[in-house]
Nucleic acid binder design. Structure first.
Lengths: 344, 344
DNA sequence: TTGTAAGCGTTATCAC
DNA sequence: GTGATAACGCTTACAA
């Protein structure tokens, strides 16, 4: 017998299988002694209840699906780690699926989750949030989005988001207070909402400080070091390059730092750099990276907690907004007096 | 009706539900036209087959469980990414569970996987590989270990491992050829087999080069930058500190780099540093990190491919050993002539 | 080519 | 307290 079932135990204990079921789930309805006896036998036989059989009747899988662009992204990994923490704590399993930021793939993933009858779906940092809505109405599984595109009038969509615009402005204000006038922006060509919003914060800050918006000072990478490096090179090749750069994320900033160094320039002496995310390596770059900290694990936890609330019947639409925190380290300083206007 | 079932479709199509089942799985046994009609209706009704019901009868969940210490570790994330790639390609879902390197938790995770009837289990970088064996014999699900402790006589255990000893010796040889005589080792206090083996390679290389093994030159971190930094500080505080350091992994090396810099010393001028793993940031540290590259994604893919082979009936014990590759970048150079013996 | 019946391993609803 | 019996949504004989 490959897998023992409650029927096998029932036979061994000379009771009916429902009684075994009750005993194993500590139902008070069953006699103490028989219950104990049954439990003994179950252990002895190495019984493990079948979650799949159980799920079929209870219509609950205690599983949540998490769709990520790729788990190899340190930001996402941290978020997922937070999701897992709460999920495991509460007896839920996490099914992971990567979409490679491809819309088709992403739809397939949601279908696959639906077929597996996951109790809920969490989507991190997708470009195609809007695509979920029609799928949603079918699957009826609650969805919570993390740093995801969605319009505010989607009723069954819940979310936890970093305050991109505000955080972006904090980063920019820091640069502006240091006296920078030519501030560049390195974004992500893929079109994530995070990028759009951070860029919006960038432009607002410029406007607020009565600084001109110069299109030539914005370049696009791919959210990874390589792309950040390429974007930085472009900016550095300008006749009058920026004295400071605000990067869409730390990965881009890492690449930017490298490109600046390769060109023989100094950070922050020649150009200041600000990142976004506060990934672990930000405290280990040379110089240490000034950045906006996102509470990554906490965002994951919040998403999972939101999910649990939904499971327990709460159905008010939740849209949690968390704040970023400016962490000033070593990669920012007043602009070099030699090149531009002096600061402070 | 919350979820449409094949019975609903059967009713709508005026056929029996097994016919629907056949039609939907493209069985050649069913009439073309009725099959088409059924498929139309299924689509129109938004039908999604229940994987749980299917699994109950087929005794296959098309799911594999992956246990990690933490997904927030970039090395592990890369490996998992490789697992996922192949898994998704072949219609398998990945259930992720983190153990926090805690033996109790790890056992619980395996039990949970067993209850969910996963088709197989992949374990990455655990300390407690040995614990799985008894569990294994019960659950009967194939297990493949990645960089994991296990004795060679465990018959049902399959594995893919980096050649730690050989890679370690390649790293050491590089340092020795550069002329280093006082080479330190920064390990991991947690007792992973990887650490033990890399340390073994370190000692062997010393012996081979007729260099003395000096216990004071080895320090232990925690596999993370913080621990690496602490270990490095200890080594630097020595009266006669090492001129080169071989680190158990890149995360430790990242911390070591930081500690060296903080102390006002230069890499590689004052001390050379070699890491292990070749995480993405190794090409972006200052100076760029010399390290041993592990084919992380490939190792994940290999593990999943091994699993698939096992599913398809192959039952020869597989123990794949992959080679590390020394990547020489900027963090290693001959020892500073001022301090030690000159090189080459 | 299609339908009937049985079964996968649970839980739920009744009786007794 | 406990046991029949049905049900969850599918697949797989076996019959027709």
């Amino acid at each position: 017998m490959s897998q023992v079932s409650i029927k096998d135990i029932a036979r061994a204990a000379n009771v009916s299988h429902p009684t075994v079921s009750r005993a194993l789930r500590n139902s008070p309805l069953v006699n103490r002694e028989t219950a104990d006896r049954i439990r003994q036998i179950a252990i002895r036989m190495g019984y493990r209840p079948s979650a799949v059989a159980r799920s079929l009747v209870t219509r609950k899988t205690n599983t949540i699906g998490v769709v990520v662009t790729t788990i190899a992204d340190p930001f996402i990994a941290e978020v997922v780690s937070g999701i897992e923490e709460i999920a495991n704590e509460r007896g839920y399993s996490v099914v992971l699926s990567n979409s490679n930021a491809d819309a088709d793939r992403e739809v397939k993933v949601v279908h696959s989750f639906h077929e597996r009858r996951v109790d809920g779906i969490i989507v991190t940092a997708s470009r195609v949030g809007a695509l979920y809505l029609p799928l949603l109405s079918q699957s009826k599984s609650p969805i919570v989005l993390i740093n995801n595109q969605h319009t505010d009038d989607d009723d069954f969509v819940h979310s936890v988001m970093i305050d991109n615009v505000e955080s972006s402005r904090a980063a920019m204000q820091h640069l502006i207070e240091l006296g920078h006038k030519r501030i560049g922006y390195i974004g992500d060509a893929a079109g994530f909402q995070s990028d759009t919003e951070r860029f919006a914060g960038y432009r607002q800050s410029l406007a607020l400080a009565a600084l001109p918006f110069l299109p030539e000072l914005v370049a696009h990478g791919d959210g990874k070091p390589e792309g950040g490096a390429r974007a930085m090179e472009k900016l550095l090749a300008l006749a009058d390059p920026p004295t400071a750069i605000f990067c869409y994320n730390d990965m881009s900033a890492l690449g930017a730092l490298g490109a600046i160094h390769t060109r023989g320039l100094k950070v922050p002496g020649d150009v200041s750099v600000v990142g976004f995310d506060d990934l672990f390596f930000a405290s280990f770059t040379r110089p240490l990276l000034t950045t906006i900290r996102q509470p990554k694990r906490r965002m994951g936890r919040l998403a999972m907690e939101t999910m649990l609330k939904l499971f327990s019947g709460e159905n008010s639409r939740t849209a949690i907004r968390v704040n970023g925190e400016l962490i000033v380290r070593e990669s920012t300083a007043p602009p070099n007096a030699v090149r531009g206007a002096s600061a402070t």
